[in-house]
Write a protein that binds this DNA or RNA. Structure first.
Lengths: 383, 383
DNA sequence: TTGAAAGCGCTACCAC
DNA sequence: GTGGTAGCGCTTTCAA
């Protein structure tokens, strides 16, 4: 009764004609088996020394039958979906589309597809979404990480299971993860030094949400530059709590009410800087003559056309995405997380990498430094 | 020999202990079967009248074992992946991210995930990419369609097979497909009429690539408006071959060299209009005093901060994406394209819908009409 | 060289 | 209420 049972089942199915998967069908028409078809179609005919004639026959029939291998079935068997998920907080801000572009470009190069998950901005808990992604058996995850204990615990858990996970655009010191981020400490420092070099002594900072580590880095870089040049950073010289035009605007209004308002302002990002400029202009100040501005990111389009072209630190978001995906591909190199040869991901505990991309100062007009019209002109070809 | 064969196989597997799928494992620990676990975990315990105690036991154990249902396996069985692919030509232009956002928001609402495929701009043939997506058994496809005979033939083939496909942002008259597009004929007409109402008689158009149907619609709308008001549209009043700043710039330069240059210009999109303004300014003209501009799309960020805030026709790309996904959900309503109860998609030949979203005139400064400062102020909250 | 057999993890159906 | 069984479409070993 326990005798060669699968065989029996197989024969049975055959007799009933119930083995009509497309490969079988092709095999039947070509007068070969199921498996041979598979070998031919997957380019293993050399290794398996399958005759040319057979190959040709199989291929012709496959084409005629409009055969499309079912990757779902393959995934079930191999435990790999060749899909990664990209979880980002927003896509409307121009910075993120660039990341998406980078990730997808790199992914395509490695035969991966990208499942995009834009976790709705207000919704702080991304755990259910990530869970859904895992149920789909994505091979890896690239996340713009979010704060909040719940999320953080979830990242840690994933990592402990050995699941391939890469952070992009932010990083937590206490989570052992690979990440690609901007070198925002040095970027902000350089930006601040640029303003100092232009003769400014009273330099304010329009900060973002204090949560993200990189956000903190920008603040630290700003502080460091001031300190190294013996300048003070009065506490109320740091204003704003989000990287938006509105917050930059409001923060600047507060700065202007101080008894000693700044003569120069570093924006935590470009939007904040623009909001600041708007407030300054409305207060009757001239930019950059009365007050200078430097932004961060260079992620706003058509910058050359702005009322006052913004001097800023350029951060290459596309490159950031690309590197993140490249890192993820490495992490996914081991055995699959599930499927036939799944095994404990324990031995996947590879060394984690943190890449820092440096930003580049792009001098335009808002800072008051001498501008070459090149910057202006060269932007035409950009769009 | 053909006697109850599956049963034998099953017993065999059982005896060998080879049925260690997670559901079986849970069942074993809970003292119930495989199938019961499945029923409990999928909320069918009411219908199957499974005892509360069993339910509780199963659920507890599942949680303890960190059970994550494998949707790949489920997909193989049901023939549905609950995944749709979104194929777009570009993501760096701000218009497309908005579409992505709309699609994804709507998709999430229906339990779908979005596989993003940004077909590289230069690569005109998207057939291989679509083929790859089909091998992954996506349930449906939303495409910003591309021209070229090969692509077009492919769309037609897909549609003939009854595969759920929706176009977004463009549409072909000769392809029987559901689509969501902008009402660009009336939009361009309205924009042109706005300029006519402001007293202009010599109105030029900075056109885009003549391929897309909507592009043609914009040109047609422009023509219609002129015609209805008895105005001429000299052939060389239409310039430009792509919706980019660079092309708008170059096109405008040509317009300015004419013996009778225009006094007003309609941009095929915002970027083209901006390029035009740039050329006009460089030629020493004042905008809008010497020459008026209207754009199309309102897809550039921080518009309020531009040197000359652009009057434009606002097109809601997010809404466009959302509607496209909603349409696709409908189309996917029938039997799955593959899997157990797949059947010829022939009866899926539902009525096709074409939705046109109308654009709204947003008056700012570039057209020379009276502007309320409201427009200016209200934009602060936008970012 | 080829083909038979087993099985990836799940769901659906029926029998008890 | 519950359990047994078949099978989704593919890959991969092993036997011939």
């Amino acid at each position: 009764m326990v005798d060669i049972p699968g065989k029996v089942a197989y024969r049975y199915r055959q007799s009933i004609g119930m083995t009509a998967t497309t490969t079988t069908l092709i095999g039947r028409r070509a007068g070969v088996s199921h498996a041979t078809v598979c070998d031919v179609l997957n380019g293993r005919w050399q290794a398996k020394r399958i005759s040319q004639a057979t190959c040709a026959r199989v291929r012709t029939i496959a084409r005629k039958l409009n055969y499309r291998p079912n990757r779902v079935a393959r995934s079930l068997l191999t435990g790999r979906t060749h899909t990664v998920a990209l979880v980002i907080p927003s896509i409307s801000r121009s910075f993120f589309p660039s990341i998406v572009l980078g990730v997808e470009t790199e992914a395509k190069q490695h035969g991966y597809h990208v499942l995009l998950s834009h976790v709705i901005a207000g919704l702080e808990d991304e755990v259910p979404e990530i869970e859904a992604l895992l149920e789909r058996r994505v091979d890896g995850l690239i996340i713009v990480p979010r704060h909040g204990a719940h999320n953080r615990e979830n990242y840690r858990q994933l990592l402990k299971e050995g699941f391939p996970l890469v952070f992009v655009n932010d990083w937590f010191e206490d989570v052992p993860v690979s990440a690609v981020v901007g070198d925002d400490f040095n970027g902000a420092r350089q930006a601040t030094e640029h303003l100092i070099a232009l003769g400014h002594r009273r330099i304010a900072f329009l900060a973002g949400n204090p949560g993200p580590t990189v956000s903190q880095w920008r603040t630290d870089g700003y502080h460091r530059a001031l300190k190294e040049h013996g300048l003070a950073a009065p506490k109320n010289y740091i204003q704003g709590f989000a990287y938006t035009v509105a917050h930059g605007y409001a923060g600047m209004q507060r700065l202007l009410k101080l008894s000693e308002p700044p003569t120069a302002v570093l924006g935590g990002n470009d939007a904040a800087a623009l909001g600041g400029i708007k407030a300054a202009l409305e207060a009757g100040l001239r930019v950059p003559e009365d007050i200078a501005f430097v932004g961060y990111g260079d992620d706003l389009e058509e910058v050359w056309f702005q009322k006052i072209p913004l001097t800023t630190m350029r951060l290459d978001a596309t490159e950031m995405g690309r590197r993140a995906m490249a890192l993820l591909v490495e992490e996914m190199g081991g055995p699959p997380a599930c499927g036939r040869d799944a095994q404990a991901g324990a031995d996947r505990r590879k060394k984690k990498t943190m890449e820092k991309l440096s930003a580049k100062l792009v001098v335009r007009e808002s800072c008051g430094a001498k501008v070459t019209t090149q910057v202006h002109g060269s932007a035409v070809g950009k769009t």
